[in-house]
């Protein structure tokens, strides 16, 4: 089937089999390999992208279902060389190690903050329940999302909790650790 979709600002039109998973179309068809695949059962969330402004797991969507959609992947999140505040916060708060879950985790976090600009720690944890990480124990991911939330609200990043931090960020909210 012929499908057209916009991915990270570029419109593509391709012939795909109906069974082609969106995630395979992005990776193998369009070369947008920034979005990885971590499972077969839609549990891990590594493949999370945004379709028409909503986070979805691209392994559980057929490419034909995304015909006409506007898709943003991790590769389209930054504005040119300016990272999205969530991307910056993940680095600043060491919210990643091996980085395999990170594209999905960041896309899920961006979606979460779109819907809830001032989440509590508990809301962040539950908001990311569909994304598994095996490296970080989630604590720094949660902190990164809270910090990005603060940044996006115009309140600046929250304080890092790390001793001897490289570039301490100003303490503007009551982060504790």
């Amino acid at each position: 089937m012929r499908v057209s979709m916009k991915v990270d600002g570029v419109t593509y039109e391709d012939e795909v089999e109906p069974r082609t998973l969106l995630t395979h179309h992005l990776r193998d068809g369009l070369g947008r390999v920034g979005t990885p695949i971590g499972c077969d059962t839609s549990n891990c969330g590594s493949c999370t992208v945004s379709i028409d402004g909503e986070s979805v797991k691209s392994c559980s969507v057929l490419a034909v279902q995304a015909a006409g959609a506007d898709i943003t992947t991790i590769q389209g999140l930054a504005e040119g060389s300016e990272w999205h505040p969530v991307q910056k916060a993940f680095q600043q708060h060491h919210g990643l190690q091996c980085g395999y879950c990170t594209p999905g985790m960041i896309m899920a976090s961006v979606d979460l903050l779109t819907r809830n600009p001032s989440p509590t720690e508990d809301e962040v944890r539950h908001g990311l329940e569909g994304n598994l990480c095996r490296c970080t124990g989630y604590q720094n991911i949660v902190k990164a999302v809270l910090s990005a939330a603060s940044e996006l609200r115009g309140e600046g990043p929250i304080a890092g909790s790390f001793r001897d931090a490289d570039e301490p960020v100003p303490a503007t909210s009551g982060a504790s650790s």
């Binding site: 998973l21 059962t41 559980s60 057929l62 279902q65």
Partner: peptide, 26 residues
């Protein structure tokens, strides 16, 4: 019938079902 596909597509991926046609209601 393909509704949201969040149960069906994983089942198809694991080849636990072999429908001949999917009718997408989206």
């Amino acid at each position: 019938i393909l509704a949201g596909g969040q149960s069906l597509i994983p089942v198809l991926r694991l080849r636990l079902a072999f429908p001949t046609t999917l009718i997408d209601l989206s």
